[in-house]
Design a protein around this nucleic acid. Structure first.
Length: 264
DNA sequence: AATTCAGGCAACCGCACGGTG
DNA sequence: TCACCGTGCGGTTGCCTGAAT
């Protein structure tokens, strides 16, 4: 079998994703889905290979991803499932909604492996007879209220099931959602490191420094040459995952963190 | 204050597998 | 049946950050 050349050989970008790349990928998938990962980056205007896009989406950008520390129950579930399934991370991830195989793999190698070695056979495992019992038990535990009580989530973290988000002085209620629109021109040029420095702020605010403004103003428009990004406040249900306030909040926060914004 | 070290995590790599012509 | 392609999966790497010295 002849393998497709890797990203580097085709002149595609590797390494950490930038905020603008994230935005492009999210918006493209939101509008068109991801039928063909290989074709996606070209159609979306990304200098990445399809594999890289898929990985980024699945492990980081997907709106239903649950971020933040693993609860004690989730950790216990992983330990039990690993005992049953071994290093089948995708199978383990299937039992933990919102968690990715990569994330579980990392948690295993950094925390749980040591715990497993320490308590080679846990009392819970001794008490259960079948794999299904283990899975059922774990799911019940993970869904219990006690999980949050035992492992409170820090302000810096966020998880998809919290009703509001508080980061520093930014507080957004859960009944206000936002949606985002990005228009790409046909002759979308190659992006370079200065891409974000071309930002023009319609209201003299910045994404990083004035996020609270986005949350309180009826409509703000940011122009990104040659892109136009509209951020508007809407009141809607959570029927569309991409419209989750928290989702865009995290996105803007990440974007803001990675930007050096010009003085206006 | 500067340097070293270890942990955490995002991302890459290569192989395997299933679908298709 | 075989070659090819797209995707999924698990192992590994390398960067970043915070703690320790």
């Amino acid at each position: 079998m002849v393998r497709a050349p890797c990203c580097e050989k085709m002149g595609l970008k590797k390494g950490p994703w930038t905020a603008e790349e994230d935005l492009i990928l999210i918006n493209y998938i939101k509008l068109h889905g991801h039928g063909n990962w290989r074709a996606l980056p070209k159609q979306a205007g990304l200098l990445r290979c399809g594999k890289s896009c898929r990985l980024r989406w699945i492990n980081y950008l997907r709106p239903d991803i649950k971020r933040g520390n693993f609860s004690r129950e989730e950790e216990d579930t992983i330990l039990k499932l690993h005992e049953m399934l071994g290093n089948r991370w995708s199978a383990i991830a299937a039992e933990l909604p919102g968690r990715t195989d990569n994330e579980i793999k990392n948690v295993w190698h950094t925390h749980l492996k040591k715990r497993a070695e320490k308590n080679h056979v846990t009392p819970e495992i001794k008490g259960l007879k079948t794999g299904q019992e283990l899975v059922d038990s774990s799911n019940l535990a993970a869904g219990s209220d006690q999980a949050e009580e035992r492992r409170p989530i820090s302000p810096q973290q966020c998880s998809s099931d919290t009703s509001s988000v508080t980061t520093g002085d930014i507080d957004i209620s859960n009944n206000m959602n936002m949606c985002m629109k990005m228009e790409l021109s046909d002759d979308f040029p190659e992006m370079d490191e200065n891409f974000w420095s071309e930002v023009l702020f319609a209201d003299n605010s910045s994404i990083a420094g004035d996020y609270s403004g986005i949350a309180t103003e009826p409509q703000l428009q940011f122009q990104f040459s040659p892109l136009v990004i509209e951020v508007e406040q809407v009141h809607a249900t959570n029927s569309n995952m991409y419209d989750s306030t928290e989702y865009w909040h995290n996105l803007f926060t990440r974007a803001g963190e990675s930007l050096e914004l010009p003085e206006i």
